[in-house]
């Protein structure tokens, strides 16, 4: 049984030769994850700030719902969005099923709770003194908001990175809404599932290695940003 060895060798060959199919799948995944994260970022961060900074009736309920949605299985989101964008669903006319747009919609719904909850926590963690100090320094409302964002910047980037990590590694939404269409909606994870099913372990493993590398690079980027904090 030298599965692993053989698979690893094939994986490295594919990566070194920049196999077209492999590249295609990886760029699709990156494109999708970056797009969904960027689109979800703005409303997510804003809602997080609003929930954290305001007291209103039903805030507790919203927080409970939010925390529940954090662990939402991707298949549930996939099924829910499928029922929306299927031809029989209310958004059927938009022709989104089995397309990039369908996956992005699903992924946004998947990560919105993550971004909202984590930015809420990031803002919540900020010392109350920050606001008073900003006012006493003579900051305008806009400047106060900018200072708040600057103080929460690591928490908020952490939220976005967590969201990115969630979408690039998820399979339920991509499979159900994208359909794993070759050259169109085939992502790293759906391709891995398929190739493994076909017995092409090398290809699957190569994708797995790339997924790991992406995760590593992202985390390294975070570390670099934090280490570079002193050079402000």
């Amino acid at each position: 049984m030298n599965y692993l060895q053989e698979a690893l060798i094939e994986a490295f060959k594919l990566i070194i030769n920049l196999d077209r199919e492999l590249l295609d799948v990886v760029t699709t995944s990156l494109r999708l994850s970056v797009t969904s994260t960027l689109i979800a970022a703005l409303p997510g961060i804003l809602l997080g700030i609003i929930i954290s900074r305001n007291n209103f009736g039903g805030k507790k309920v919203i927080n409970v719902i939010l925390n529940t949605l954090l662990g939402l299985p991707t298949v549930v989101v996939g099924l829910f969005v499928y029922s929306l964008i299927s031809r029989r669903g209310p958004l059927g006319e938009l022709d989104m099923l089995f397309s990039i747009r369908g996956i992005i919609l699903g992924q946004i719904i998947l990560i919105l709770p993550i971004i909202i909850a984590l930015s809420r926590n990031a803002i919540h963690d900020i010392d109350d003194k920050m606001y008073k100090t900003a006012i006493s320094m003579g900051a305008t409302r806009l400047q106060q908001f900018k200072l708040l964002l600057a103080e929460a910047r690591y928490g908020i980037s952490g939220a976005l990175i967590a969201a990115f990590g969630r979408v690039i590694g998820e399979i339920g939404v991509s499979m159900m809404l994208g359909g794993n269409i070759r050259g169109v909606t085939r992502t790293i994870t759906t391709a891995m599932a398929m190739e493994t099913n076909k017995g092409r372990f090398g290809f699957g493993l190569a994708l797995g290695l790339i997924l790991l590398t992406i995760a590593f690079l992202v985390n390294f980027g975070v570390y670099y940003l934090q280490a570079g904090e002193s050079s402000v």
């Binding site: 003194k129 920050m130 100090t133 200072l147 103080e151 904090e229």
Partner: peptide
Amino acid sequence: SRRKFSVIWQNPYLYKGSVSYNIGLPLRLR
């Protein structure tokens, strides 16, 4: 009016960044 006042707080809050950034911050806001 507020910009003619300053407050030194008990247990002061410093913003993320260097000491010189913090000292210069009120001028930056102006």
